[in-house]
């Protein structure tokens, strides 16, 4: 099956949703082609607003639209949506608990050649810490579609983190997305690999590699980072007794942190975190960057072997 980027789901899904819901509007900040909201703009020109290079304004205009009964989806890149407009997200959208669904693309280091200025390694941490905000990181195109669709009916703000790099499909068009519920996609008994976003694919590959060595790895897709599916994680950790987290994000404040917070309070378990260290990204091809920052299936395998 052809690889597709999670961002490709945005424009297409918005068109479908807009056909069903008259009160859906979308905004972007001069990145409509990259985020794919330009598809929505062509289909519904009256319900799309390009604010130009002004992410803070986009965020607050969306808030104003939301007060008139609109459900607003916003584009832009993750680094700008969460960072440049952080105060607008915090003080205007989240504080007022408004129906704005932030769907930034180009998250993580797989942005590639644009380099560290454009690679958001801390956006999950920022968004997780904001009250009222929900955080979803889809693993593939189909999960992205489903999450974007589900966000329409989730009250208040939602942050859906999308990527630029095409990834292999894990799910299909019949996938049923349950917000807030982690998905066990492979049963195992020796170790739990909890992954989010594009690292879910790597986790599945790692599980295959481990199986060859008679290590049985459970793989759980933690697509919703907030609210975290604590019971599913605790259950898997209790069964296997060892947990490895994997995310294309800093190990500070992301999935690894959330799982560490949960386990250390409720059920101390051996834990290793795969993620980006406390550093910025750099230019390079996506595959080179995944390797440089230790985000490959091989890195997960090594972490598992060391842990158990």
């Amino acid at each position: 099956m052809a690889k597709r980027a999670t961002r490709e789901a945005l424009g297409e899904t918005l068109i479908e949703l807009a056909e069903e819901h008259e009160n859906l509007v979308a905004l972007d900040a001069d990145l409509a082609k990259s985020t794919t909201t330009t598809k929505f703009a062509s289909a519904f020109p009256d319900r799309f607003f390009d604010v130009g290079v002004a992410e803070q304004n986009m965020t607050c205009v969306a808030a104003g639209l939301a007060t008139t009964g609109k459900v607003c989806y916003t584009g832009s890149f993750a680094v700008f949506a969460s960072g440049r407009a952080f105060d607008q997200v915090r003080n205007t959208i989240a504080y007022a608990n408004l129906d704005v669904k932030l769907c930034p693309t180009h998250a993580g280091v797989t942005v590639g050649a644009d380099g560290g200025s454009h690679q958001s390694v801390e956006d999950i941490a920022l968004m997780r810490a904001v009250p009222n905000m929900k955080v979803v990181v889809p693993a593939d195109y189909y999960e992205a579609r489903a999450a974007i669709r589900a966000a329409f009916s989730i009250p208040g703000p939602v942050y859906i983190r999308l990527g630029r790099e095409p990834v292999t499909a894990i799910f299909d068009e019949f996938y049923e997305f349950n917000f807030g519920k982690a998905v066990k996609i492979r049963e195992g008994s020796d170790v739990s690999i909890l992954a989010t976003g594009i690292m879910v694919g790597a986790a599945l590959s790692a599980a295959e590699m481990l199986a060859a060595d008679n290590i049985s790895a459970e793989v759980v897709d933690v697509h919703t980072l907030k609210p975290l599916d604590g019971s599913a994680i605790l259950e898997s950790a209790a069964k296997t007794g060892a947990v490895v987290t994997a995310e294309e994000h800093s190990i500070i404040g992301g999935l690894g942190s959330a799982v560490a917070e949960l386990l250390s309070e409720k059920q101390p378990t051996r834990l290793a975190r795969i993620g980006i260290g406390d550093e910025f990204g750099t230019s390079g091809a996506a595959s080179e960057l995944l390797e440089k920052y230790g985000l490959t299936a091989g890195d997960i395998v090594r972490a598992v072997r060391k842990l158990i």
Binding site: V61, A63, G64, L65, G69, K70
Partner: peptide, 14 residues
Amino acid sequence: LSVAAGMALGLRLD
């Protein structure tokens, strides 16, 4: 002011 602009847009749409 941005929020008010968003409100004005929404009201005009409706």
